[in-house]
């Protein structure tokens, strides 16, 4: 069986010909029902990757080249009408800030019902019933009454549940979750992650979970893709990549997370910051911050494959992390 989603050499640019490549040659595959953790620092191009798949890029962003094969259809080139039929129905998205994702002047019920009606010609009453059930499913108490409430009458966590309810309405094949818990406080975060996990497992929905929180990835994901300055620098199964990272950047990310088995050791932050995409040095983008960099790193390393995993580095890290 072929993969549900296969992204090949995706390039997304802002400003034609200006070299503002927010996503630069990204490739990955995702099987049905699997969870991919897409990680990387702020500005590394995670959201732009997600919005490229949805074809909802802000202007002047556009897909410059590459393919996004979703169940055999290339989303990079398919018609806008086809995209509209897929969005919400087979590919859904949950955004980072639940305070901003619901229209403030429409009731939650309206926003759920219209999502049902966008893809199914059912009577309004049936749509309403579906909406109510969807709210119940994500753990919102007294869903019937809440249908006529406005977004501002909900807490952040409850609003994100509404957004998740909308995303799950049509049991999509793929959900892109762009840091859906970052704006919530920790206890709510944990609840939402569990609910999300339970519901996507039930509906066999594949998930691209965008985050910079490795703890979430290790809890949720099957696969992981690490992005740096618009490029994929390491990818593979969660066990492999988090257990024995090959790319110095991935290792740096892992070392900067507090962990049980390194208790007492100081956290090691990666020095420096992500370079702006319009000011990338030639060669390996991580060079300026890398403690393994050599002269040779002034050329761009290609992805090297090691079975099902790959990394983009001339001098990959060997062995498990905690021994170093």
């Amino acid at each position: 069986m072929s993969a549900l989603l296969e992204v090949r050499n995706l390039v997304t640019e802002f400003g034609k010909g200006l070299g503002l490549l927010a996503v630069n040659g990204v490739s990955f595959t995702l099987d049905r029902g699997k969870v991919l953790g897409l990680v990387g620092e702020s500005g590394s191009g995670k959201s732009v990757t997600g919005f490229s798949i949805m074809r909802l890029l802000d202007k002047p962003g556009r897909i410059a080249s590459g393919q996004i094969l979703f169940d055999g259809v290339d989303l990079a080139t398919t018609s806008e009408g086809e995209m509209r039929r897929l969005r919400g129905k087979r590919i859904a998205m949950v955004f980072q800030d639940p305070m901003m994702t619901l229209n403030p002047v429409l009731t939650v019920g309206t926003q759920l019902i219209e999502a049902v009606l966008a893809h199914e010609a059912v009577p309004k009453e049936v749509a309403r019933q579906r909406a109510r059930d969807a709210l119940g499913l994500v753990g919102i108490p007294s869903p019937e009454e809440r249908l006529s409430a406005y977004p501002h009458e909900f807490s952040g966590g409850m609003r994100q549940r509404v957004a998740i309810a909308i995303a799950l309405l049509h049991r999509p094949d793929l959900i892109i979750a762009d840091e859906p818990t970052t704006a919530l406080d920790v206890t709510i975060q944990s609840q939402i992650i569990s609910e999300f996990q339970r519901l996507t497992e039930q509906s066999k929905t594949a998930v691209i979970w965008i985050t910079h929180d490795l703890a979430i990835v290790s809890r949720l994901a099957d696969e992981i893709a690490v992005m740096y300055a618009g490029r994929l620098v390491e990818t593979g199964s969660v066990a492999h990549v988090l257990g024995t990272p090959r790319h110095p950047y991935t290792r740096g990310l892992i070392m900067s997370v507090p962990s049980q088995n390194r208790r007492g050791e100081p956290l090691r932050q990666i020095p420096g910051i992500t370079p702006a995409i319009n000011r990338l040095p030639p060669g390996c983008s991580f060079r300026a911050r890398c403690d393994r960099a050599t002269e040779g790193c002034s050329a761009m390393p290609e992805l090297s494959w090691e079975g099902a995993r790959a990394y983009r580095c001339f001098h990959p890290v060997e062995g498990p992390t905690h021994e170093r």
């Binding site: 949805m54 909802l56 802000d58 969005r87 998205m93 901003m100 619901l102 229209n103 999502a115 966008a118």
Partner: peptide, 18 residues
């Protein structure tokens, strides 16, 4: 137009008219 809730409405697959 640039608000997230418009983007989210698009992500639901609503028609441009709606």
């Amino acid at each position: 137009l640039p608000q997230d809730y418009i983007k989210f409405a698009r992500a639901k697959g609503l028609s441009e008219r709606r």
